[in-house]
């Protein structure tokens, strides 16, 4: 302050030291900011993959639970028959061709249903349906028809989450 009043400039050493201090402070502040943003993004990605995966699993579980038939069964798509006020209708789930969406086809009288809505999307999704439960533990490779396992892996950013469930199609014979 006194220097400013007597109109004398700062020395080179003073300016260098001031610049060094400023750059250290800015570097520290910048790294804190970047770390915070990175951590926030990690949290958001983790929450997003969990939300997508658990929503899809619940959706499939609840709709397959009431199914009475399984006309189409593939690793990445499934069509089930449900009873809708006395009329048989078809529901379908499939993984989209690009592996980024899970498509749900609401109850329809046509088999397979044609109109769909996307119920989940992410950077990459893996959705697999399998029949894993042996009808008789002593007899290999003969599986129960009315039990389907569903595995889903959702990736968003650097986060990947895998959930797995199984559901009995209660209207079907084993």
């Amino acid at each position: 302050m006194a220097r400013l009043n007597d109109k004398r400039g700062m020395s080179l050493i003073e300016i260098t030291i001031a610049t060094m201090i400023l750059s250290i402070v800015l570097l520290a502040a910048g790294s804190i900011y970047i770390s915070s943003i990175r951590e926030l993004n990690r949290c958001m990605d983790e929450a997003a993959v969990q939300k997508e995966a658990s929503f899809v699993l619940d959706h499939i579980f609840l709709n397959l639970m009431g199914a009475k038939g399984l006309p189409t069964f593939n690793a990445n798509s499934i069509v089930v028959t449900v009873d809708d006020s006395g009329t048989d209708k078809y529901i379908k789930y499939e993984l989209s061709g690009d592996g980024k969406n899970v498509n749900f086809y609401p109850p329809s009288t046509t088999n397979p249903p044609t109109t769909y809505e996307v119920i989940a999307s992410a950077d990459t999704i893996s959705l697999t349906f399998t029949k894993s439960l042996l009808k008789d533990p002593a007899v290999p490779n003969v599986y129960l028809n009315n039990y389907v396992t569903v595995d889903i892996t959702v990736t968003r950013g650097r986060m990947t989450k895998t959930f797995s469930t199984g559901v009995v199609l209660r209207g079907m014979e084993g």
């Binding site: 579980f61 129960l144 009315n146 039990y147 469930t165 199984g166 084993g174």
Partner: peptide, 15 residues
Amino acid sequence: NYGRKTQDAFRAIWL
């Protein structure tokens, strides 16, 4: 989900 999966496996066997 694993609990549900296990429970439904037993239910499928029972059915």
